[in-house]
Design a protein around this nucleic acid. Structure first.
Length: 444
RNA sequence: GGAGAGAUGGCCGAGUGGUCGAAGGCGCUCCCCUGCUAAGGGAGUAUAGGCUCAAAAGGCUUAUCGAGGGUUCGAAUCCCUCUCUCUCCGCCA
């Protein structure tokens, strides 16, 4: 959520900035609602003040044993009017809140303006794509030939966009996650966390997946609950949605750890990591990446989250990207880092770097990590604060990034490390996690 | 699943219809005293808003005692619903 004060002070400027992201802010509707809000709120508070004063007088009169019947009359009609105007105010504020909750974050000044993927800027690249002297096969062919990857059976169990891995491939997948966690906890100072994979609507509202992107989520209805997402006035206590949702990313539980908290200054920055499954409905991506395990309903990710002081969050973003890059460097996989343009950024992000790994079979760099500074956008939604130097509560900045997507990393390993005979060399960094195994083969 | 108890400010904890945004304590900040590996005295110390002000300061004001609803002129306090926590029993990886 962006700061409503910004909208009040400079509506046109904000709208212009949002337009660079391809978002049309409802300027007219907002100003009209704001005008109504101002009028209704002033009036409401006037009436409330009168009622409070009269009630206080009645109290005083009673204490002195006096007759207060004239005061009763004065207040009698006030009650109805107050109730009515309160209801009006509430509906206006709900409408304003609805607009705010739908509005994406403002881009940082250093973000290039653009419409889509083509306008992203390469910041740097690392490693050189390997030159193959035999026909390159993709990870599906490699895995299926080895007999370790089976999409048909997965489809039988669950449908499309699921995968079944067995034997040393399943183990390699597990090894990748362990390896990533170890690097981040031992070398980058992250605290490991084990988190819920089912979260409530409030958490998803906090990180920005709800209310706008409900169709991307898998919802788990609770018994006897009405699946209603009621979004009204206040930022926190208006969610009637009792249902649970499968997390689309570990960012959700990890970031919401600080929701409604005031963390002490000295505990910043907080660095958290977790290995979690992620579940996405992939609605609206029909026909994209239908082959293989690039785009799945269920995949594993090691997530990095930082909770930072506002003045240090952009430094933290650079560090966080570096932490994710480190994994690819240790695995010796070529990649490039892209600075996303305004039009390609996610809803909550103020600035995002994507890391794209080289996939030989596609002859392309593909996203394997996305690292964002959300500034106070999420913190405002979930009321995550710290005590600043003046001992006053102030909104935190939240950052998140993949470190890395495990499934896609596995794809990258299979394709980049494939051999002419159909085997796959296991990257050196992973061998300690594989009992020293050097080669993925049918025998293995 | 059954039975019971609870949820108050950064923390502990009092408060069962009116001067309670909330006693007292702890913590924290500032000041004074003392003088050293102690202590004592005083003052201050919730959050989110609105209006006002050129801005800051300030002033006026609203809401918030787990959440939502109700009763009432008036609710932390009474009623209803929900959520969460704790204890015991049952079941279970």
């Amino acid at each position: 959520m962006i700061d409503i004060q910004l909208l009040r002070a400079g509506l046109d400027d904000v709208a212009r900035l949002l337009a660079t992201r391809g978002y049309v802010f409802p300027v007219v509707e907002f100003s009209e609602l704001e005008a109504q809000r101002k009028h209704l709120q002033t009036r409401t508070q006037e009436l409330q003040a009168r009622r409070n004063a009269a009630s206080k007088q009645i109290g005083n009169a009673k204490v002195r044993g006096e007759n207060a019947s004239s005061l009763f009359e004065e207040v009698a009609n006030l009650g109805h009017e107050v109730k009515q105007i309160e209801a009006e105010l509430e509906s206006v504020q709900a409408a304003l809140n609805h607009i705010l909750l739908q509005t994406p974050n403002l881009p940082h000044p250093t973000v290039p303006i653009g419409i889509g993927e083509a306008d992203n800027q390469e910041v740097r690249h690392w490693g050189t794509p390997r030159v193959f002297d035999f026909p390159i096969r993709d990870h599906v062919a490699i895995g299926e030939t080895l007999g370790l990857l089976d999409f048909q059976t997965a489809a039988k169990l669950s449908g499309s966009r699921f995968s079944l891995m067995t034997g040393e491939l399943a183990r390699l997948h597990r090894a990748l996650a362990q390896f990533m966690l170890d690097v981040h906890t031992r070398e980058h100072g992250y605290q490991e966390a084990y988190v819920p994979y089912l979260v409530n609507a409030r958490s998803l509202l906090g990180t920005g997946q709800l209310p706008k992107f409900k169709e991307d989520l898998f919802e788990v209805p609770r018994k006897n609950s009405e699946p209603v997402l009621a979004v009204s006035a206040g930022p926190k206590h208006d969610l009637e949605d009792n249902n649970l949702y499968l997390i689309p990313t570990g960012e959700v539980p990890l970031t919401n750890i600080v929701a409604e908290k005031i963390v002490p200054l000295e505990s910043l920055p907080m660095r958290l990591t977790a290995h979690t499954p992620c579940f996405r409905s992939e609605a609206g991506s029909y026909g994209r990446d239908t082959r293989g395990m690039i785009r799945q309903h269920q995949f594993e990710k090691v997530e990095l989250v930082q909770i930072a002081h506002p003045q240090e969050s952009y430094e933290a973003l650079e560090e966080l990207v570096g932490h994710a890059e480190k994994i690819l460097q240790k695995l010796e996989l070529p990649y490039r880092v892209m600075l996303l343009c305004t039009g390609d950024m996610g809803f909550a992000a103020a600035k995002t770097y994507d890391i794209e790994v080289w996939l030989p079979a596609q002859q392309a760099y593909r996203e394997i990590s996305s690292c964002s500074n959300c500034e106070s956008f999420q913190a405002r939604r979930m009321l995550a604060r710290f005590r600043n130097e003046k001992n006053k509560p102030e909104l935190l900045h939240t950052l998140n990034g993949s470190g890395l997507a495990v499934g896609r990393t596995l794809v990258a390993v299979l394709e980049n490390y494939q051999n002419a005979d159909g085997t796959v060399t296991i990257p050196e960094a992973l061998r300690p996690y594989m009992d020293g195994l050097r080669l993925l083969s049918t025998a293995g």
